[in-house]
């Protein structure tokens, strides 16, 4: 089902947390609300679920405005960070609870619980208690409980935050698989860019209650709307250099990157260089010294202090032989640079 937020506003007391937010999620799409803590992403999610009262604007499920509809009457499924399973009930009772509340017959509940348990692959756990399950299994139960009543929207609030790294990778693809198989419209709230990029069709990047950019993961990475977006996505993260664009593009430290091209005459600005666009033979050379090297197995991460000032990060295939303290004259792929105004707008 298509979901639309129109001029959605939320206040806590006198503080306006979200002011006139617009968001459209297409039917069957999975979208991520990505941002640092306190940016309003969970608030938005809880408002969609009906757990927070809406202070302005509309929330449309299909054509129906649910802004004033109670949480009980909204038909959303939600998965919480701590799963919020009911500890005194078995897995089957947990999953069947939404149906039981709705007054469905025991046989019907049993049939639906079995079918959804099959989908999330927990058939053999139905008689267990939540305390007897691993984190990943609890996650699956929570997902099954959210999906069993065929909700209009599936809401996921930091669902992977409590899992260890390996399980997180596994559950990432599992949640996406289930979402694709059921064709449900889903919203994922996360502060982890990798989760957002790997699981979702589109990402809405939020900052202080507003959506800064909304686009596909690849588009957002390659074409960030501003300095904030560029700095948020990418691991290891992008490096920024102060520079001045006259005839030529000159770094604050004095080194030159050659003709300024389309940036000519912009004056003081900031350049964003992703680690993969800095390295041996990538473009105009800059003199610098390696101050830090980290081995990541398949590749090595370097931090280079440029002569005259500025620090860049480079990611190179393992085995380059470069050590901490070495002087390097690696180049910057000038055509892949991002330029930002002093206020952070993309140039």
């Amino acid at each position: 089902m298509k979901l639309v937020l129109e001029r959605f506003t939320k206040r806590f007391g006198a503080t306006t947390v979200i002011d006139g937010l617009d968001l459209t999620v297409a039917d069957g799409e999975m979208i991520a609300l990505l941002g640092p803590s306190g940016c309003g992403k969970s608030t938005t999610l809880f408002a969609i679920a009906g757990l927070h009262r809406v202070d302005g604007g509309r929330i449309l499920f299909g054509a129906r405005d649910v802004a004033d509809v109670s949480a009980q009457a909204r038909n959303v499924g939600i998965v919480f960070q701590n799963y919020a399973l009911y500890p005194h009930m078995s897995v089957a009772q947990n999953i069947g609870f939404p149906l039981r509340v709705r007054g469905e017959s025991t046989t019907q509940i049993d049939r639906k619980v079995r079918s959804i348990a099959g989908l999330v692959r927990i058939d053999e756990l139905l008689d267990r208690r939540p305390a007897q399950l691993s984190g990943g299994q609890q996650q699956r139960v929570a997902l099954a409980r959210a999906l069993v009543r065929e909700p209009d929207v599936l809401l996921l609030d930091e669902p992977l935050a409590n899992l260890d790294a390996k399980l997180r990778m596994e559950m990432r693809s599992e949640i996406r698989r289930v979402q694709l198989e059921t064709g449900i419209t889903a919203i994922l709230v996360t502060h982890d860019q990798v989760e957002a990029m790997s699981m979702c069709d589109r990402i809405a990047l939020m900052k202080t209650g507003q959506i800064v950019q909304i686009s596909s993961p690849a588009e957002m990475y390659d074409n960030p709307a501003d300095r904030y977006v560029a700095s948020f996505l990418g691991n290891p993260s992008i490096a920024f250099l102060a520079a001045d664009a006259g005839e030529e593009l000159r770094l604050a430290g004095g080194q030159s990157l050659g003709p300024a091209g389309r940036l000519a005459g912009q004056g003081p600005l900031e350049l964003g260089v992703r680690p993969e666009h800095y390295g041996p033979g990538k473009g105009p050379q800059l003199q610098g010294k390696v101050v830090m090297m980290e081995t990541h197995g398949r590749e090595d991460l370097f931090e280079v202090d440029l002569d005259g000032g500025g620090r860049l990060r480079a990611i190179l295939p393992a085995g380059s032989g470069v050590r901490t303290g070495a002087s390097v004259d690696w180049g910057v792929a000038v055509e892949r640079l991002f330029a930002f105004s002093p206020k952070g707008a993309r140039l």
């Binding site: 809880f46 679920a49 009906g50 757990l51 949480a71 009980q72 009457a73 909204r74 038909n75 959303v76 499924g77 939600i78 919480f80 960070q81 701590n82 799963y83 919020a84 009911y86 609870f97 939404p98 509340v101 709705r102 409980r145 009543r149």
Partner: peptide
């Protein structure tokens, strides 16, 4: 969250 889950469960 247990109560929030219960409420969204209807």
């Amino acid at each position: 969250e247990i109560e929030m889950a219960g409420v969204t469960d209807g």
